[in-house]
Design a protein around this nucleic acid. Sequence first.
DNA 1: ACGATATACGCAACAGATTGCATATGCAAA
DNA 2: TTTGCATATGCAATCTGTTGCGTATATCGT
Lengths: 191, 191
Amino acid sequence: MALSHAILVSLLDRPQSGYDLAKRFDRTVGFFWKVSHQQIYLELHKLARSGWVASAPVEPSERPNRIAYQLTEDGRKALDQWMLEPTEPPNFKEEMIVKLFALEASNRDTIRKEIERRRDLHTQRLAHYQALMAEHYPEPARLSARRRGRYLGLRMGIVTEQTTIAWCEEAIACIDLDAPKRTKSDPARPR
Amino acid sequence: MALSHAILVSLLDRPQSGYDLAKRFDRTVGFFWKVSHQQIYLELHKLARSGWVASAPVEPSERPNRIAYQLTEDGRKALDQWMLEPTEPPNFKEEMIVKLFALEASNRDTIRKEIERRRDLHTQRLAHYQALMAEHYPEPARLSARRRGRYLGLRMGIVTEQTTIAWCEEAIACIDLDAPKRTKSDPARPR
DNA sequence: ACGATATACGCAACAGATTGCATATGCAAA
DNA sequence: TTTGCATATGCAATCTGTTGCGTATATCGT
């Protein structure tokens, strides 16, 4: 049950509505962990039923249809308990690997282009993460505990993208290892 | 629908039963993609209903309760179609990041130990992958197309584990950056 | 005044995946 | 001979997560 606990962690900071949580997810871990707003509303209802969160008073200045939730004592205890439990390595369903397993039986040109597309996509993501890093963490050595956790999350994003890009380059070079040599004037690539 | 296509790709090789497929999954991509045997049996039924696989004759020498499936013409077409579709980057629900987001509010010692545990686990996985690499792909430059796809899958496993281990080391070093200095004779670590 | 966009919540149906249970055979070790 | 293990399949319940739809209000530009 990772999402519910991610919500609890976010509520440690301050009371938030489902909408707030969804936006915050998108801005922080959203790139490598997609969560739909439906899922968040659903989890909030469940957490409320468990008594781990409760509706928080909404400032009269805010919209009336907004429902903010705050962490309860029970929720805080549940979170502390969860922190003690071991984490599983995430599993990682990379469809590219499945396609590569079919390398012999399928069109190499298609696969190569797809890996190139993925490489470009990850290059964009990396640039985005690096911009965030430069903007928010110019001096990592001097961060508060609160910001250090977020910094490490972003670092994971960066090293993951770098690794993925390097792997894509390796895969592109590897796919045609047995193909006949090509020249610039004859760039046709055989199947 | 990635699992169903992974099954189709595996059946490209030869007809297989659910049990065969499950074992093969465990031996190949199983480390980073856990699939239960139930899920495989379920998908096989679905694929059979769609007409993408069909029961294959079972050798009389084999156990009678074994049901092997083979790819049909339709299944092969569906697979070719799927190869043309773009792949999404996998999403990657790393619970450690959620825990790190709670760094300020929780026990650092617990988090540090958990990251050390994860680092050790990934170190074991890496050793396992490297053993597989040495055993099966001692000379990567001379592989057939069939084996090259599998080689690249294993390479992805290796670089992913290496990256994860390096990130764990970085995180361990980073967690206590603001803690008072410790000596070997006084290894107590404050919260 | 109108439309676009952002805010804000939720239901219903489905798909994907896990967990626990049930069943049955064959083989080898204690 | 009994116990346990590997082989081999499957149901039912549950949980997790997605997709599509529906409903509002507020804000802002034209």
